[in-house]
Design a binder for these strands. Structure first.
Lengths: 226, 226
DNA sequence: TGGGGTGTTAACAATTTGGTAATGATGAAT
DNA sequence: ATTCATCATTACCAAATTGTTAACACCCCA
């Protein structure tokens, strides 16, 4: 039992789905909490601090995307894995989901067996980064030990905040980080800085790197991609 | 059996973990001492002078970081390898740990097999520079035995603190050492010195060496590069 | 007792940085 | 096409950080 003790919150408005999924996850040693609408999901997330949150997109009260956006803007859920349940060919939700701070999505309908293996893989993915400290993506290498970034092996000198910001965004390439998330993580939740501060730092990073690896998602935040 | 006779101290408050890990390490020829809380860890460390100390972060009496801090402030544990057992994505402990002189981290949960191979690698890492005590980088040679540094074979006389500081930075070229790390390692965690002390020593080293091999990373620390 | 080397501190200079305001784009919604 | 919110860009300034110098206390040894 590799992932013993991990807590999972599932939010969906269909009781049948909740039951069959939670039963199967429990069989595999996970602790499961369920919620039947968006408001309940937020409440239970705060109460239980789960390691993984699975959100159906279509839910009463608040839909999955709203829930995700709300949770992600709070510091306590920065590290939580959040994934969406979406209808099979709902491309729009897929895109939207990732752009609101989700880590991944799962297409419905899905068999319990596949669900369990997907969940396992989420936790495995998190277990990875322990040996190799450096992130290497395309021509960009980020080495936290050296506080240094390399582009095509050319060292690039970033200031502390710039480095921390880039390193944070690059920790999950493709995933969009909300402005609030970034503020919480890089500046800390007590510090208050103006709206444009993030932009300016992003600008400086873009300028120094010379390449466009940080994408703006308007109204939401930024993401790192090659 | 390469590492016969090496002594390992493991401190953890869960008897099961202690037992399974120590059993497996003993199988591989290590001598294992166990401790079930922070105070006991310190006591047994002094009694047995182990070569490697594995500290769980969360322990009764004193936590792993406190233990590390105390041990590192005593000269007899300068050379001892100290590693932490941490929860998976416990960034904070990692940072704290490094500041107080930890050599590495092991993430929980961990299988006995991986634990043994990690332990082996610690000793391999340490066994290496026992033969060649001197560090040689570019035109700079650092000889701890003589407390002496050579630049292009010209001897350069550094004072004790200066030498220790340079030697510490040069132990991992390229890696940034936080000011706190440096203070804890060179001055010891109980000594309190002013803000400018490090700078002055750095300056003296730069002056005496005549070349620019120490880079400032503002807001972070210093690193040694050729 | 006095001199050289060492470690530390204080005071000030120099530098870098982080943040903001002002203004100019941009793009989605109407 | 226009509006409005949002983001990009630039230049500027204050604060944080580090560099530098000189002075001081200390210790060891002659």
């Amino acid at each position: 039992m590799v992932s013993a003790g991990k807590k999972i919150l599932i939010a969906d408005d269909e009781p049948d789905i909740l039951e069959i999924i939670s039963y199967n996850l429990q069989l595999h040693g996970y602790e499961v909490i369920t919620a039947k609408d968006g408001d309940q999901a937020i409440l239970k997330a705060k109460q239980n601090q789960p390691d993984l949150i699975i959100l159906d997109i279509m839910m009463p009260k608040k839909n999955g995307i709203e829930v995700c956006k709300i949770l992600r803007s709070q510091a306590e859920f920065n590290e939580t894995i959040i994934v969406f349940l979406t209808a099979l060919n709902d491309e729009l939700s897929h895109v939207k989901g990732l752009e609101y701070g989700a880590d991944d999505f799962i297409s419905k309908p899905i068999s319990p067996k596949i669900m369990v293996s997907k969940v396992n893989s989420f936790f495995r993915r998190i277990n990875k980064p322990e040996t190799t400290n450096a992130i290497e993506l395309g021509d960009i290498k980020i080495v936290p030990d050296e506080y240094m970034v390399y582009y095509k092996d050319q060292p690039i000198n970033l200031a502390k905040k710039e480095f921390e910001l880039l390193n944070y965004l690059a920790s999950k390439p493709g995933r969009v980080f909300l402005r609030n998330e970034i503020l919480n993580r890089i500046w800390g939740s007590e510090v208050i800085v103006g709206d444009r501060t993030i932009d300016v730092h992003i600008r400086k990073i873009r300028q120094k790197l010379g390449i466009d690896c940080i994408t703006t998602v308007k109204g939401v935040g930024y993401k790192f991609e090659i």
